[in-house]
Amino acid sequence: MNKTINQKAWYFVIPVFVLVAFNAAIPLMTVVNYSFQETFGNNVFAWEGTRWFKQILLSERFHAALGRQFAFTFIILLIQIPLGIAIALTMPKKGWGVPVCLILMSMPLLIPWNVVGAMWNIFALPDIGFLGYTLNSVGFDYNFTQQPGDAWFTTILMDVWHWTSLVVLLSYAGLNSIQPAYYQAAEIDGASRWATFRYIELPKMKKVLTLAILLRFMDSFMIYTEPFVLTGGGPGNTTAFLSIDLVKMALGQFDLGPAAAMSLIYFFIVLLVCWVFYNLMMKNEAQS
C-alpha cells in the first residue's frame, strides 16, 4: 500500500510509545546502571567500569549455561518445525475435523506456564506418573529428578508438547492460503507427492515458517518457568538454562552487577539473532 507522509501520525503512536517506554526504557536503564557498578547495600554504589562484563564473558558458568541454552533451542527447533509441518500436512482441510483439531491442538498454548511444568512433573514422576511409570515398567531405568539425560529428555518432550501446536497452526494457515489451481497444475504435470511439497507447499509456507522459527527461537531462548517448575534446573545444574541461571544470580544471590551484565549480554544475543530473522522476513514480505 502506498502510504502518505504525515508527521502528525506520531500523535497516534504516543500512547504506545509512552506505555512501552515506561516499561522498557526505565528498567533497561536500571540494568545498564547496575552493570557498571558494585553495590554495597543501602544504595551505596561504586563505579566498576567493564569489570562485570569481562567477568561474565570469561566465566565458565556463563559459557556452560549459554551452551545448554543453544543446545536446547537447537534440538527443539529440529523436532518442532518438521513435526509441525508434518501434522499440518495431514490435518483435515474441511468438515467437523477442522474445529476439533484446532481447539484440541491449541489447548497446551493456553495453560499457564508453571501449570505446564507442574503437570509434566506429576506426569513424569517414576512412581506415580503415567510417563515415568510406563517407561519404567517396559524396562527403562527412568528418573528425571536423578539422571541428567532423563531430565533433558523430559524437558524437551515437555517443550515439544507445549509448543509444536504453534508451528502446526502457522503451517496450517500457510497451507490454506494455497489456491487449488496450484495443486491441479501439479496433478496435470504428474508431480510426485514430494515434488508437490518441495516446489509448491514449502515455498508458500516460507513466510509463516520464518515466523514460526523466529517465535520458537525467541521463546525457547527465554524459557524459564516450565523447566524451573519441572526440574528446578537440576539435577545439579544440568538443565539450568540462561534465564534460570540469571534469576538465580540476581534474586537468589543478589549479585546485581554481574547479573545485570549478564542480562545485557543475554538480551544482545537474542536481539542479534532476531534482527537477522526480522530482515529476512521483511525481505520475504517485500517480495510477495
Partner: peptide
C-alpha cells in the same frame, strides 16, 4: 520488547 527475556526485567 517482544524479544526481551522477562527474566532480564524482573528485578528492575
Amino acid at each position: 520488547n517482544r524479544m526481551a527475556p522477562p527474566a532480564v526485567f524482573a528485578l528492575p
